[in-house]
């Protein structure tokens, strides 16, 4: 029997992996994938709460989030392409023109 706790543990694991990925990985594409994990961990938490609380708000919120995340990742990939054209690299460590 799946309980709310199971879903929350799953979402927390995804969230932690996502945050760790954004902060630790150096490849921008992996960072974008980690960002998606964070958004989806929040979506899982919202959907699970919505199911167990017998309310619809959370489900509606998930639909909005999916739309927003799609727009967000499109912009992220566009910026990634612009970075690659300028720098010929997708490694964040090599992007250090501005410091201080």
């Amino acid at each position: 029997m799946l309980t709310l706790t199971h879903f929350l543990i799953l979402s927390f694991l995804l969230f932690s992996i996502g945050v760790a990925g954004v902060l630790l990985r150096r490849n921008i594409i992996i960072i974008l994938m980690s960002l998606e994990l964070i958004f989806n961990s929040a979506n899982i938490a919202l959907a699970a709460f919505s199911y167990f609380l017998k309310g619809l708000n959370g489900m509606v919120f998930v639909v909005f989030n999916i739309t927003v995340a799609a727009a967000e990742v499109a912009i992220g990939l566009a910026i990634l392409v612009a970075v690659y054209r300028n720098r010929k690299t997708v490694n964040v460590d090599e992007l250090g023109d501005m410091k201080g």
Partner: peptide, 17 residues
């Protein structure tokens, strides 16, 4: 910015919960 939106969203999910 996207990381902060994600963290905010996760917080909102728990406020909803």
């Amino acid at each position: 910015g996207a990381l902060s939106s994600g963290i905010l969203l996760y917080g909102i999910a728990f406020a909803y919960g």
